[in-house]
C-alpha cells in the first residue's frame, strides 16, 4: 500500500518534470497536427467546476496527443475567453475553449457580443453532462412538483442560485416562465453560499447541480422533487424527470443540464478536428474517465460535431427567450 502510493507520488513528480522539459524543448515541428502545444482556455477562474473538469480532460488529452496547457481567462460570464477564441489569428489552430451553458447564456445576457456563438466556431464534442436537481429543504411542506407548483401559484416562493446568469439561475427562470408562477430569485455568490440558505429553509427551492446537492439528498437534509434532464438520473433512480411529472404545468419540454464541451475557432483544420474527435472518443470510453464521472453525478456527453452545434443552437434559442422574459437581455 505504502510502496504503491510512493510510486504514484514519484510518477506524478516525474510526469510534472517531463511535461516541463517537453514544453521547454518544444515539440518537433512536423506538418501533422498537433505541431505545437494545445492551449485549453477555461473561461472561468481556477478552482471552479469548469476548471476542474477541464484540467481532468486536459490531463487525459495530454496522454493521447501532446502537452495541453490549461489557461484561465475568466470574465463577463465566459464571453471574454470566447471572444478571444472567435478573433482567431496566430495559434488559433491549437486553441480550444471549454464551453458550458455560460456560452449560450452569456451570449443572451451580455450586450454587443462581437461574435456569433454558433457560426464562428467549430464544435468538437460535448464531453460531460451534469444534470440539475430540483431540491427543497427537508422542512419544506412540498413533496412533489405538483404540490410545489400549486403553492407557488398561490403565494410567493423563492429560489436560490449561485449568481445571476448561472445555469442554475436560468433553470429557475425557465421553470418560472413555463409554470406561470411568480418565484423570487435570491442570488448568492457561488453554491457554497447558496447551499446553507437552502438547507436552513430561507429559500424554498433550488435547481442545483447534482454534485452540489447529492450528499444532502442522501443525508436527508434536502428533498429531491425532480431531475431536470430528459430521463431519470442513474444516481437518483427514484426521482422523476421534470418532463414526466410536469407536463400538465407546461414543463413537458423542460430540459436543462450543465454541459461541458470543446469548441475551436471556425478555421480549425479538419485534420485536427478528426484527430481531436478520435482522441476524445477514446477518452470518453476510457475506464479512467468513466470512474471519474460519477464523482460529479455526471454522464459522458454524447453530441459530436454538427450534432453538438445543433444542440448549442437550441440552447441559445431557449436561453435567449428566458433572458428576454426575465428582463436580463441588455
Amino acid at each position: 500500500m505504502i510502496s504503491t502510493s510512493t510510486k504514484l507520488f514519484k510518477s506524478a513528480v516525474v510526469a510534472a518534470v517531463a511535461s516541463v522539459t517537453l514544453a521547454m524543448t518544444g515539440v518537433a515541428h512536423g506538418e501533422e497536427w498537433p505541431s505545437d502545444n494545445i492551449r485549453l482556455v477555461v473561461p472561468y477562474s481556477a478552482g471552479g467546476t469548469t476548471d476542474l473538469l477541464s484540467r481532468k480532460v486536459a490531463d487525459l488529452l495530454q496522454k493521447e496527443l501532446t502537452t495541453v496547457v490549461v489557461e484561465n481567462r475568466p470574465g463577463a460570464g465566459s464571453t471574454v475567453a470566447t471572444a478571444q477564441l472567435a478573433r482567431g489569428g496566430r495559434g488559433s489552430d491549437h486553441m480550444l475553449v471549454m464551453a458550458s451553458p455560460g456560452h449560450t447564456i452569456g451570449a443572451s445576457i451580455y450586450p454587443n457580443l462581437r461574435y456569433d456563438p454558433v457560426e464562428d466556431f467549430v464544435f468538437i464534442r460535448n464531453v460531460i453532462d451534469i444534470p440539475n436537481v430540483m431540491v427543497v429543504p427537508a422542512s419544506s411542506p412540498y413533496n412533489s412538483v405538483e404540490e410545489f407548483v400549486a403553492a407557488a401559484r398561490e403565494g410567493q416562493l423563492s429560489f436560490s442560485s449561485p449568481g445571476i446568469g448561472s445555469s442554475i439561475h436560468m433553470s429557475g427562470e425557465l421553470f418560472k416562465n413555463l409554470t406561470q408562477t411568480n418565484l423570487i430569485h435570491v442570488p448568492f455568490r457561488g453554491s457554497g453560499e447558496a447551499l446553507p440558505a437552502l438547507l436552513a429553509g430561507d429559500v424554498d427551492v433550488a435547481f442545483e447541480n447534482m454534485p452540489t446537492v447529492y450528499p444532502h439528498i442522501q443525508s436527508g437534509k434536502l428533498k429531491a422533487l425532480a431531475v431536470t434532464t430528459a430521463e431519470r438520473s442513474e444516481f437518483l433512480p427514484e426521482v422523476p424527470a421534470l418532463q414526466e411529472v410536469g407536463a400538465e404545468f407546461g414543463l413537458g419540454d423542460y430540459v436543462t443540464s450543465a454541459w461541458f464541451g470543446l469548441i475551436a475557432h471556425k478555421s480549425f483544420p479538419e485534420e485536427a478536428q478528426a484527430k481531436l474527435g478520435a482522441a476524445l472518443e477514446k477518452i470518453v470510453e476510457s475506464k479512467n474517465f468513466k470512474s471519474f464521472l460519477p464523482q460529479f453525478g455526471a454522464v459522458a456527453g454524447k453530441e459530436v460535431g454538427d450534432e453538438f452545434r445543433a444542440f448549442v443552437a437550441d440552447e441559445l434559442e431557449k436561453w435567449a427567450e428566458v433572458a428576454e422574459q426575465a428582463n436580463l437581455k441588455r
Partner: peptide, 16 residues
C-alpha cells in the same frame, strides 16, 4: 494560495 491550490490540484489526481 488560492491559485497555488488550484494549480496543484491536477497533480493530486494520482495520489492517495
Amino acid at each position: 494560495a488560492t491559485m497555488a491550490v488550484a494549480l496543484a490540484l491536477p497533480f493530486t489526481f494520482s495520489l492517495e
